[in-house]
Computed example of a mutant assay.
Amino acid sequence: MSLQSTSLRAALAAAALSLTGLALPAHAFSDDEARRAILDLRQQIQQMTTQNQQARLQLADQIQTLQHEVTTMRGELEKLRWEQDLSKRSTQDQSGGSPKQVGNPQEQAAYDQPMGLFRSAKYKEAAAGFGAFLQKYPSSQLASEARFYQGSSLYASKNFKGAIQELQALVQADPHDPRAADALLVVAASQIELNSLSGAKSTLQRIVKSYPQTSAAETAKSRLKLLQ
């Protein structure tokens, strides 16, 4: 091999090494850019995922709030319907004849006074008035009516425990009283207000079973569906 050929090969090798050395930094720089791009992309994806999770949580909270508001509105509407129904029933004679009257004018006046308060939506005063009437005339022909309206007044004034006590006493004293089914409806409504749903269901089922031919039984059936 000639000296000239050897020198040429050495020069070519040196040139190749020089080119390789120059290419390495450029290659390393491209990898760094790619890594940064990947890291940036991962960060963006993570941020988007976090934002989506927060958005879903906020949406779930909003849906829950709306559901609660709808439930509350339904409850208020149902309560309003019940109060309207109670007001309607209070003007009806449940005995099938004319409203009861007694011969003693003082006794009749003692009953009419709280009844006027009841019809004027002065329920606390009415409850007290009916209570006073029952104390003074416990054996009156108007006693069961007075006890019914006393319990209804207690319910309307949000004394739910008192309403239950008075109206259950009415039904216990005479299960065949014309007001018994309606009295149990008020008992059930009071139990619902006290969050005693099992007690309310039991009371409503009792109405349906014991007083099937009454309008109260139809109301009880519709309320049982709402409590399912």
Rank of each mutant, 00 (worst) to 15 (best):
S222Q: 15
L66A: 13
G162I: 07
Q64R: 10
Y137D: 01
L17D: 03
S140L: 06
G151E: 02
A220F: 08
Q46T: 14
Q53C: 13
V102K: 06
S196N: 06
V187Y: 01
S210C: 02
Q92M: 11
R56T: 14
D177S: 15
R179V: 03
D31N: 14
K161Y: 04
Q141L: 08
E69D: 06
P138E: 02
M73N: 11
A169C: 05
S139K: 12
L154F: 05
Q51H: 09
Q51R: 10
A217D: 08
A169P: 04
I164F: 04
I63P: 01
Y211N: 10
R89C: 02
L227Y: 11
W82I: 03
A189S: 03
G151S: 03
K161E: 01
Y137E: 02
N195H: 02
I38K: 10
S190H: 00
D40R: 10
V208G: 08
N159D: 15
G96Q: 06
T49C: 12
Q92T: 11
E145C: 08
K158V: 07
T203G: 08
A128Q: 04
Q165N: 05
S120Y: 01
S120W: 03
K100D: 03
L19A: 15
L77K: 04
Q58V: 11
S2A: 08
I164T: 09
T203Q: 09
T203S: 15
D40N: 12
V171Q: 01
G96E: 09
I45Y: 12
Q106S: 11
S87Y: 06
T72F: 09
R223Q: 13
D182H: 12
Q168C: 13
V186L: 03
R147I: 02
E78W: 00
T50Y: 13
L80G: 03
L227T: 13
T219Y: 10
E76S: 14
E83H: 14
A181M: 07
Q108F: 01
L224W: 08
S222Y: 10
V102P: 05
A156P: 04
A15S: 10
Q43Y: 01
Q135N: 08
R147D: 03
S90R: 07
L86F: 09
Q106V: 09
S198R: 12
K209F: 11
R119W: 10
T219I: 09
Q92N: 04
T203F: 08
A127P: 01
L224P: 05
Q94F: 13
L184A: 11
L8D: 14
S18T: 07
S5G: 08
N52A: 12
P105C: 09
T203I: 12
D112Q: 04
E83G: 05
S120L: 02
A180G: 00
K136G: 01
R89V: 06
Q43A: 09
H68R: 08
Q47C: 11
